[in-house]
């Protein structure tokens, strides 16, 4: 077979064939990877696979579906957490267990904004997954009081914000931990990265809200720093230690960040703040399951 001829023939009917075969696209990437393993005899099969992917006729790879469903579970949790609060603060709502008051309109607006983003993420992921999407998680499937660990989550504004911070910082870590599994699908990776940084923006704002609510009694930096006693957890809530496990890393790809380049200003805390750390799937699942009822856990 003559592949050059084939490409020329295709170009006659599809002038963009070379663009579709751009090596940055998933089809070519997987084809290149395949090139390491196959012989020329297997070329026709590999080519067929490449074109199928270039023209978008195959389903998402299984590993990508798993990552997206994992992300979807987390987004459902975040959405319900905020949505229950906002619905509960709506006049005439049947939700009556949200008893704290927002200190001002801006704080309620911020939580509404975040709720809307989480809903958009849920919808986006469902759309991307299509028939592969996991079963929906309903509010009734959740337990944001975590079996009593955060019993005042909807009656005390500070507890609500502390749990919110935990969700957002966990979300940032979870997406980071899964990014590598999406290298095979650059388009999906792009979208995941765009969700990831939105979660980081949320985390930054929630941390500022906590500082404002503390009214001088505590400060929560917008970025993940070292705890007051030098521990990885800077949230002031020991119950969420698991959310921050390993966030105190100061060596990146073999480079010690503390004082790097002779910069004495880069203290251990600054080194910790400069890099957010990923969290593996099992650890994230353990955290998420705190907020899911029996029979609904991940």
């Amino acid at each position: 077979m003559n592949i050059v001829n084939i490409l020329e023939e295709i170009e006659k009917v599809d002038g963009e064939v070379y663009e579709r075969l751009n090596p940055r696209r998933a089809a070519m990437k997987s084809f290149f990877n395949m090139g390491k393993k196959i012989s020329l005899a297997a070329m026709p099969l590999a080519l067929g696979s490449m074109f199928q992917k270039a023209y978008g006729q195959t389903a998402l790879p299984t590993a990508v579906v798993e990552v997206l469903n994992f992300a979807l579970s987390l987004e459902y949790l975040e959405y319900h957490f905020y949505n229950h609060c906002i619905v509960g603060k709506t006049a005439g709502s049947s939700v009556t267990d949200v008893t704290f008051n927002f200190p001002n309109a801006a704080s309620q607006a911020a939580i509404t904004t975040i709720r809307d983003h989480e809903k958009a993420h849920v919808d986006l992921l469902i759309g991307a997954l299509g028939s592969s999407a996991r079963a929906p998680i309903a509010y009734a499937d959740t337990d944001f009081r975590a079996g009593g660990a955060f019993a005042s989550v909807y009656s005390d504004y500070n507890t609500f914000l502390a749990v919110a911070q935990g969700f957002e910082d966990t979300g940032v870590r979870a997406y980071k931990g899964q990014a590598g599994n999406l290298l095979v699908s650059p388009g999906v990776l792009q979208t995941a990265l765009q969700i990831h940084s939105v979660e980081a923006r949320h985390a930054s704002h929630i941390r500022q809200m906590r500082t404002a609510a503390a009214n001088g009694s505590a400060v929560y930096k917008p970025w993940v720093s070292l705890g007051a006693s030098g521990q990885a957890n800077d949230s002031g809530v020991a119950a969420v230690d698991a959310v921050y496990a390993g966030e105190d890393l100061t060596v990146q790809a073999g480079a010690n960040i503390v004082g790097i380049g002779g910069n004495a200003g880069i203290t251990k805390a600054a080194a910790v703040e400069s890099f957010d750390e990923p969290l593996d799937k099992a650890s994230v699942v353990t955290i998420a399951n705190l907020f899911l009822r029996d029979g609904k856990k991940l």
Binding site: S197, A200, R201, E273, F275
Partner: peptide, 18 residues
């Protein structure tokens, strides 16, 4: 490398939000 970029971009996003 992707992970390292991910570790940095979320810090930039935290800065941006602040």
């Amino acid at each position: 490398f992707l992970l390292l970029a991910g570790k940095i971009v979320s810090v930039e996003a935290r800065h941006a939000a602040y």
